[in-house]
Lab assay of single mutants.
Amino acid sequence: SEEKKKAKERLERLGASSELARELLDRANGNAEKAERLLRKLL
Results as ranks from 00 to 15, higher is better:
S1E: 14
S1H: 13
S1I: 13
S1Q: 13
S1L: 12
S1N: 13
S1V: 13
E2G: 11
E2N: 12
E2V: 11
E2T: 12
E2Y: 07
E2C: 10
E2W: 06
E3C: 13
E3K: 11
E3W: 03
E3T: 12
E3G: 11
E3Y: 06
K4E: 14
K4V: 14
K4A: 14
K4G: 14
K4F: 15
K4N: 14
K4T: 14
K4M: 15
K5S: 12
K5P: 07
K5M: 12
K5Q: 14
K5N: 13
K5C: 10
K6V: 10
K6N: 11
K6W: 06
K6Q: 12
K6A: 12
K6T: 11
K6Y: 06
K6D: 10
A7D: 08
A7G: 09
A7I: 13
A7Q: 07
A7H: 08
K8L: 15
K8G: 08
K8A: 13
K8T: 14
E9L: 05
E9H: 07
E9K: 09
E9D: 10
E9C: 09
R10K: 09
R10S: 06
R10A: 08
R10E: 05
R10L: 10
R10N: 07
R10V: 07
R10D: 05
R10F: 09
R10Q: 07
R10H: 10
L11W: 04
L11C: 02
L11P: 00
L11R: 00
L11S: 01
E12K: 08
E12Y: 01
E12C: 11
E12W: 00
E12A: 06
E12M: 15
R13G: 09
R13T: 09
R13K: 13
R13C: 12
R13Q: 12
R13E: 11
L14M: 13
L14N: 03
G15A: 03
G15R: 02
G15K: 02
A16E: 01
A16R: 02
A16H: 02
A16Q: 02
A16C: 14
S17T: 11
S17G: 06
S17E: 03
S17R: 03
S17K: 03
S17P: 06
S17M: 03
S17A: 05
S18C: 08
S18H: 08
S18I: 07
S18F: 03
S18D: 10
S18Y: 02
S18G: 08
S18W: 03
E19A: 10
E19V: 05
E19W: 04
E19S: 10
E19C: 13
E19G: 07
E19R: 10
E19N: 08
E19Q: 09
L20A: 04
L20G: 02
L20K: 03
L20R: 03
L20C: 10
L20W: 02
L20P: 00
A21T: 03
A21W: 10
A21F: 06
A21S: 04
A21C: 03
R22W: 12
R22K: 14
R22A: 15
R22G: 11
R22Y: 11
R22P: 01
R22C: 13
R22D: 15
E23D: 11
E23L: 11
E23P: 00
E23R: 09
E23K: 10
E23W: 07
E23H: 11
L24I: 08
L24W: 02
L24C: 06
L24F: 03
L24A: 02
L24Y: 03
L25Q: 02
L25S: 03
L25T: 02
L25N: 00
L25R: 01
L25A: 05
L25G: 02
L25K: 01
D26F: 06
D26G: 06
D26K: 09
D26P: 00
D26N: 09
D26Q: 11
D26W: 06
R27P: 01
R27A: 12
R27W: 15
A28N: 05
A28V: 11
A28I: 02
A28E: 05
A28P: 00
A28C: 14
N29C: 12
N29W: 07
N29R: 09
N29D: 12
N29K: 10
G30S: 04
G30V: 01
G30W: 08
G30N: 08
G30M: 05
G30H: 05
G30I: 02
N31G: 02
N31S: 08
N31M: 04
N31E: 06
N31H: 06
N31I: 06
N31C: 05
N31L: 05
N31F: 04
N31Y: 04
A32M: 14
A32N: 04
A32D: 05
A32C: 09
A32T: 08
E33P: 04
E33T: 10
E33M: 09
E33R: 13
E33H: 09
K34Y: 15
K34R: 12
A35F: 04
A35K: 01
A35E: 02
A35L: 07
A35Q: 00
A35T: 01
E36H: 03
E36N: 03
E36S: 03
E36G: 03
E36D: 04
R37I: 11
R37C: 13
R37G: 13
R37H: 14
R37L: 09
R37M: 11
R37S: 14
L38T: 05
L38F: 03
L38R: 05
L38E: 14
L38H: 07
L38K: 05
L39K: 00
L39D: 02
L39T: 00
L39W: 04
L39P: 00
R40P: 03
R40G: 10
R40Q: 13
R40Y: 06
R40F: 05
K41S: 12
K41W: 11
K41D: 15
K41Q: 15
K41T: 10
K41E: 15
K41V: 11
K41L: 13
L42G: 04
L42E: 07
L42F: 08
L42Q: 05
L42V: 08
L42C: 12
L42M: 13
L42P: 00
L43A: 05
L43P: 02
L43F: 07
L43S: 05
L43W: 06
L43D: 05
L43H: 06
L43I: 11
